[in-house]
């Protein structure tokens, strides 16, 4: 029984070592990025003070796509090589990605109202990010829809891979269609078209969101590993004690 958990056991030690550093880096990067973004950076000559929403909106959108790519990658590894940790990482990533997608949509809305005069436009970029949000929800719903967690993991992995077609659509939607949403000014041929006083806080916030992702991801993977162990123990106890198995053992927490 235990050789199956040998790999997760090593991972648990690694996670315990990395997690404090990820937490510390998140706090430091976030503090620096916020001070630079909210106080030290200038207002945009076109957008005025509202440009400060960029320092949370753009990193959220980056992370929304990054998390989905990580999710699809982990699902591919889990399906092809049947790596147990990859499946747990995918399941742990989904809620974080959904949270970032939600934040990208809400902060974008709060930025769009003063700049475009409307909370929402039905253009390609906004619609495809909304679809991304639904893909996250669908992934999580399917993952939890089976009595056998292994079945849910496999079915939702296939869904995550199918949904990956949406990622290039999001990426190129601002280039392919005419839209209110401005194209990327950071990743661009010939260097970013954005002043360093704004680029620095933006990149710091992006890094902070990335380390936040690592931090919370490690917490969630540890939880998934323990939940797997609990299920194995409960099944062994049920098998050992037959029909007399106590039903008192609480189910693993369902908050995901």
């Amino acid at each position: 029984m235990f050789h199956r958990f040998a790999n997760p056991a090593r991972f648990l030690r690694l996670a315990a070592a990395v997690q404090p550093w990820a937490a510390g880096a998140t706090v430091v990067l976030l503090a620096t990025g916020l001070v630079l973004g909210l106080v030290a950076s200038p207002a945009d000559y076109q957008q005025g003070e509202t440009v400060r929403i960029m320092y949370v909106h753009v990193p959220s959108a980056w992370m929304a796509i990054f998390c989905y790519s990580a999710l699809a990658g982990a699902c591919a590894v889990a399906l092809i090589w049947k790596h147990p940790l990859a499946g747990l990482a995918a399941r742990a990533t989904a809620p974080i990605g959904a949270a970032f997608t939600f934040l990208a949509l809400v902060t974008g809305s709060l930025w769009g109202k003063p700049m475009w005069g409307t909370w929402w436009v039905w253009d390609a970029r906004l619609t495809s990010v909304l679809v991304l949000f639904f893909l996250y929800l669908g992934y999580m719903a399917l993952d939890n829809a089976f009595d056998d967690p292994g079945r849910g993991a496999k079915a939702s992995s296939i869904l995550a891979l199918v949904g990956f077609v949406n990622v290039p659509i999001i990426k190129f939607s601002v280039d392919w269609w005419n839209t209110l949403h401005q194209p990327s000014s950071v990743v661009k041929m010939g260097g970013p078209a954005i002043h360093p006083s704004m680029l620095t806080p933006l990149l710091l916030m992006g890094l902070a969101f990335t380390t936040y992702y690592v931090w919370v991801l490690l917490i969630r993977i540890r939880r998934e590993i323990i939940a797997t162990k609990i299920r194995a123990l409960q099944m062994r106890q049920a098998a050992g004690q037959g029909a007399a198995a106590p039903a008192a053992a609480p189910a693993p927490g369902e908050a995901r």
């Binding site: 639904f134 399917l142 009595d147 079945r151 869904l159 949904g163």
Partner: peptide
């Protein structure tokens, strides 16, 4: 067809199917 195949054996199949398929 992808959605219909994915929900086989799940709880709440029908409503789940719409959540999976409609965005696509």
């Amino acid at each position: 067809a992808i959605g219909a195949a994915l929900i086989l054996g799940s709880r709440r199949g029908g409503i789940l199917l719409s959540l999976l398929v409609l965005p696509l």
